[in-house]
Design a protein around this nucleic acid. Sequence first.
DNA 1: ACTTGATTTGAACCATCGTTCAAAAGGTAC
DNA 2: GTACCTTTTGAACGATGGTTCAAATCAAGT
Lengths: 218, 218
Amino acid sequence: MVQIKSSDLPDPSGDRPEESRSLRRKREILDAASRVFRQRGLHASGMREIAGELGMHVGNLYYYFRNKEELLAFCQEDSLSGLLNLAREALALDAPPDRQLRHLIVGHVVLLNEETPGSLAHLEVEALTGEWREKIMAKRETYEASIRQILEAGARQGLLQVDDARLAAMAILGSLNWTVKWFRRDGDMSASEIGNAFADQILSGLSAREANLRRQSS
Amino acid sequence: MVQIKSSDLPDPSGDRPEESRSLRRKREILDAASRVFRQRGLHASGMREIAGELGMHVGNLYYYFRNKEELLAFCQEDSLSGLLNLAREALALDAPPDRQLRHLIVGHVVLLNEETPGSLAHLEVEALTGEWREKIMAKRETYEASIRQILEAGARQGLLQVDDARLAAMAILGSLNWTVKWFRRDGDMSASEIGNAFADQILSGLSAREANLRRQSS
DNA sequence: ACTTGATTTGAACCATCGTTCAAAAGGTAC
DNA sequence: GTACCTTTTGAACGATGGTTCAAATCAAGT
């Protein structure tokens, strides 16, 4: 009777060389689940398919996760942890807020589309209920707050022009999150290329100006 | 045995005073379904709940729609028709492309969040298969093409700065579509206020400039 | 009133899906 | 090799949800 506690799955995604066998297996399941969720869509993919992806049987999943919702919640938490790390990374950057923002934008697109396989789940908080929902939403709120923090710092320093940080953050997040709906691994642009192009557009805006200032730093 | 053909539900949402009883009922169902989809989420809402919303019984739905997928497809088509109208409207506007773009942006946010009740469905093309999926995706492609058309016209006239119209369109659409995930009817901003703020941000960009040109027309 | 076709009911069917559990298999330390 | 805990299996249960359909009801037209 192991019964792994919900507080497992450490935030730093760095691999401990000596993780218990059980935890490694758990992460394997998590990754498989994420993959399936992404391919077939959240509600279209059942526990049996997730188990099948790993060549195991359904019941076995319930040895590691209490139910489907917990599995989904862990996927989302994993994905969000990556984003929170990214946000910390961006804020710790020794660079002006506009560059911090670019770092975050590019990282977000890469994370959602190339690294974290569970990203799609991140878009479906509605599927969660109760404590899990609150926990995930709290984490998401923290992430959004980090973005606002960058924007407001930029505004304070006169580098960014931000009327309503909350609104600006949602506009940005919309562009970034939406990429999971159309990004293709075999497309003609990598995630980081897309991220950089988005950063260009978000920072410069679409309006042409007389003096065409392509970039103002470097 | 009436068997309404799939080509019904006329694009112009203007009410014909003499629509057949059957068609009116069909639209009632469509609206109810959209409402339920939106509240409970697509997969969480069953046929019984949709029927319940109208005080009718399950089986009756199948007199008007072959199955759930057809119901969903019609919802999406309805929503997309509204957007296509909007795009035509914007393009027909006797104004420079940047104003056409603003018109489209504001209209899109309003349509998705206040007018068309079936908007949420619009975000879930994955749930469709076969012919329906293709039909919806084709319509969506047409809409996106309209946006690119505006952007490219703007670029040609030197009014807009667009590197990659396809990418720019996706960034914009992401911001707009994402609003349905967080917009609240009882929030402190109306859909059109949000749309206008978005248009400001998308056009001007976040980078502060020496000459702070808030608006360049009017 | 009577007939005919349109609409609605009510109940059932069937597949799928999440979940449970007792039993089998694996792995390890003594 | 044997005892003990971990992990996996295989099969089943119960609920839900989409779907079907024959029968009942409704709405006109004559």
